[in-house]
């Protein structure tokens, strides 16, 4: 190729005015020939363009993403099953408890005494707790020294 022709062609190329065929010819030309210093950048560029086209998608194409989703549903189903069975067995054990003797007293007199005893015990515990609050009266004593009640 004449040097001048090459110059105008490169000029056209830079302005985006070359046809596909011309561009292909340039690729071929720059790939196979030694070129003058001034075109060295184009040689690299065209070599790059040709080489870049050789990259391939090497992975297997997978069209079925559905099985994955099936398993996801299986997971949901399994967890529901686990929760359900847990609730079910829990219910069973509760029922068992109901059937057992819980110490219900049939005689009213005895029941009355027993209840009284229990309430007494609760009251004792409460008053025991209240003893600790006696300390608070100390505050009142000090307060009364300064603030006389009318």
């Amino acid at each position: 190729m004449e040097l001048n022709d090459l110059r105008t062609l490169v000029q056209k190329f830079e302005e985006g005015k070359t046809s596909l065929q011309e561009e292909r010819d340039m690729k071929k030309y720059f790939n196979s020939n030694e070129v003058p210093e001034e075109f060295i950048a184009y040689k690299s560029l065209f070599n790059f363009n040709v080489a870049s086209r050789n990259i391939e998608y090497s992975k297997e194409i997978q069209l079925n993403s559905k099985p994955k989703r099936k398993w996801a549903y299986a997971g949901v189903a399994a967890s529901i099953l686990i929760v359900m069975s847990f609730l079910f067995f829990n219910d069973l054990t509760n029922k068992k408890l109901d059937e057992q003797n819980l110490g219900t007293i049939e005689d009213p007199e005895q029941a009355y005494l027993k209840t009284k005893e229990t309430l007494q015990m609760v009251a004792d515990v409460f008053s025991e707790g209240r003893e600790d609050l006696e300390y608070l009266n100390e505050f009142n004593k000090t307060k009364n020294k300064f603030i006389k009640e009318q």
């Binding site: 985006g16 060295i40 184009y42 690299s44």
Partner: peptide, 21 residues
């Protein structure tokens, strides 16, 4: 618009290449 964009890209690449050369 495509031709203009392409032309810009080509010029830019060439300029940068010349710089490094």
């Amino acid at each position: 618009a495509i031709r203009v964009t392409l032309s810009r890209a080509r010029k830019k690449i060439k300029e940068e290449l010349l710089k490094t050369h």
